[in-house]
Design a protein around this nucleic acid. Structure first.
Lengths: 197, 197
DNA sequence: GCTGAAACGGACAAGATCGGTCCGTTTGTT
DNA sequence: AACAAACGGACCGATCTTGTCCGTTTCAGC
């Protein structure tokens, strides 16, 4: 995501050698994929396999597990904060709301494993990002409510909670599993249920 | 659930000795709890610990893992089929629908681990139960649609799929995790979104 | 009660997987 | 060419899982 040179641009310092940079990017991407599919306690071996590098490389880059998780979470939060800004830029409050809601639902679905773990892992930097995104989200929701487009009988925290719903894995009765379809389905009905009027 | 004597009442034959019966019940109950909280691949040891019996007892009762899973699934399906019959007995189609929908959502949430696995595991007996429940569900949904209480722009399979949504684990942003609250929340909004008119 | 058989429990062997280290080899830089 | 940085993966000990086996307990019929 971020491939600049400067020594301490993010929480994680970028290495100097080009192959090191390439591998750093690979590891982070692999970690995101791995965390998404296998939860927060994926093994380092699994991540290394996914990234196509040796375990040593992963351990060298992230000696502490928390550092890795912080990097992953930060990466996701950055994307979402961007979406939130786009949402606030929309003239139409409902449009902005559904944009952000969709974005949150999508990330939640993709990273079903890490829900609720934001608080524990990640240092103050991640906490700061989280706080920023929470604030933006609150504003997007309340604006839609103020304009009478979003039902007012729910606190903004509860609306936020609903973003977890589309992360459907299936139902007790099975059916042919089609996550994407299910995701879209829930999103549609949920937004219908949320609209004011 | 079923503690009768006959040798081959269900897929699983009931043992003769009273302690054996007691343990059989314990193991099944423990298996349900364990599968609910730890997914389909709980270890036999875990189930035994949960049941308060030795591993040997579990292995003796269910030499094949599939047999155990079939028993668990059958147990759940039995409860749901019962609910479905209650739903059809309701005079009010919407009341019946929301009863069954809630029941399905609850089981899905409680057994989030086993979604979609109904097809693979469980022999023809379970398949039969599944088919029966599917049929009942279809009737409940279509009756509500026919009476103009449930939106018609969704196929009954899709409505069924939605029962997976309330099984919220959390969202990317964390918040204080409160599954029960989230579950109720999604259910409410979803039912609002599903009502016709 | 007594006795035989059924059921029990948990120690145990074998294998998989995990976290984490270490060192011989490769690769980039100057 | 030469040096250092980065790499990869074999390897170790610990943990967890599957599945078996056998000495002990518990039930049922007499």
């Amino acid at each position: 995501m971020n491939t600049e040179r400067p020594a301490a641009s993010q929480g994680t310092a970028m290495p100097v050698r080009v192959d090191a940079q390439r591998n750093a990017a690979r590891v982070l991407a692999a970690a995101r994929r791995a965390v998404a599919s296998a939860g927060l306690d994926v093994s380092y071996h699994e991540i290394a396999r996914e990234a196509g590098v040796g375990v040593g490389t992963v351990y060298r880059r992230y000696p502490e597990r928390d550092q890795l998780m912080a990097a992953v979470l930060s990466d996701i939060l950055t994307e979402l904060i961007d979406t939130a800004h786009q949402a606030l830029d929309c003239d139409d409050a409902w449009e902005g709301f559904s944009l952000l809601f969709t974005g949150l639902a999508l990330r939640t679905a993709q990273n079903a494993g890490l829900s609720g773990s934001l608080d524990q892992h990640g240092g103050p930097a991640v906490a700061q990002q989280r706080h920023e995104l929470l604030d933006l989200t609150r504003r997007v929701i309340e604006r839609a409510q103020d304009q009478g487009r979003l039902r007012r009988d729910l606190a903004w925290q509860d609306v936020l909670r609903l973003t977890g719903a589309p992360a459907v894995r299936g139902c007790v009765l099975g059916l042919e599993p089609d996550p994407a379809h299910g995701h879209h389905l829930v999103l549609t009905v949920l937004l219908d249920g949320l609209q004011a009027g």
